[in-house]
Amino acid sequence: MAFALAPEPPVAEWLAELDGWLRGSAAFFAARPAVLDLAAVHLTGAAVAHLVAELKARGIRVLGLENIAAEKLVPGLPPLLSGGRTVEVADTAARATGEGAAKEAKRESSLIVDTPVRSGQTVFFPSGDVIVLGAIGSGAEIVAGGSIHVYGTLRGRAMAGTSGNANARIFCRRLEAELLAIDGYYRTAEDLDGNLRGRPIQAWLAGETLMLAPIE
């Protein structure tokens, strides 16, 4: 599972913003390859190669490119990918109704998902909180820049605070999670206290430790 980075023009500003995120969670991308989604920018092949190099200098490995014309691919670039299964409301809004709408969507600070998130699906919302009115299936992922609220059973992975936000929290009605992470610090199901399973819990970050407690 890879993260999608979607640069927006002007690219230099976007890179500066990325630097800000990375200051908060420098090692975040160390084990996570990224997919570069070029839908919102118009770059030449050489410019894309330069961007890939800039990301590499920041420790971000780009494993593939999306939404770029095949003719622009110069040798040495990561491969063109298709059929990505990420669910990103802001991105699809951009493609459907143009840049104006994209900027609107990005300013929204929370995403509400009112259907269950099925196994194999990813909800990726780096701009803010994600609220799910349903269950998260085993093998599904929620990746949020802000907090994650699950009004249902959390069976998959929840990764909050991915934009370097250590104050983000994770809430769920019933804990059956496979992995919880806040700002890059994570715990797998094995490391979660046995008597927290099946209960409503909240998780938060205390220093470098992920803390969990039941919600009464």
Binding site: T115, R118, G120, Q121, G137, S138, G139, A140
Partner: peptide, 13 residues
């Protein structure tokens, strides 16, 4: 059950 959950996700997309 997990595989069926996956398939339901595909049916919806």
């Amino acid at each position: 059950v997990r595989d069926s959950d996956r398939i339901i996700g595909l049916l919806d997309s």
